[in-house]
Amino acid sequence: MQSSSGSNPSQVAARNCRRLQRELADLITGGIFHVEEGAAGSTRWVVKIRGAEGTFYHGEVFRLQFVFPPEYPIEAPEVVFLHPAPIHPHIYSNGHICLSILYDGGWSPALKVESVCLSILSMLSSAEAKRPPEDNDNYVRTCSSSPKKTRWVFHDNKA
């Protein structure tokens, strides 16, 4: 009951199935991220991310949920942290992530699950303070269940 998509995993369109198959294989051979739930034919994946050594998040493991729309990769996947989300200036306590590449204007169909995971890991690693976003409580109270419906304003690339 944790999925913001609500529905059971369903079959993805044939057009993106083969691409997801390849992405899954690349993630497994890449070996950096562990796919906890996911199959090429499933619209919902859960990927584990380990905090890098020498950063605030060393020793912590987080779970990222990807939900693929039928038009993926033309349309961006919906990416959120499952509870508990990392405490980070750009990550809200409900798991929503303020990162431009996840939303319209920043997404590119050349991005992959692996490159999204790497960007998020790098965002965690470059944190200068371990604190929630300043407007966390207000955002979490008022936002839509999908972060893709939020009108994000991207201020900086430092945390």
Binding site: R15, N16, R18, R19, R22, E23, P73, I74, P109, A110
Partner: peptide
Amino acid sequence: CGICRLAFDGCCPD
């Protein structure tokens, strides 16, 4: 192809 990741010697998914 950088979008669908299928070979150029093949065709797009559609």
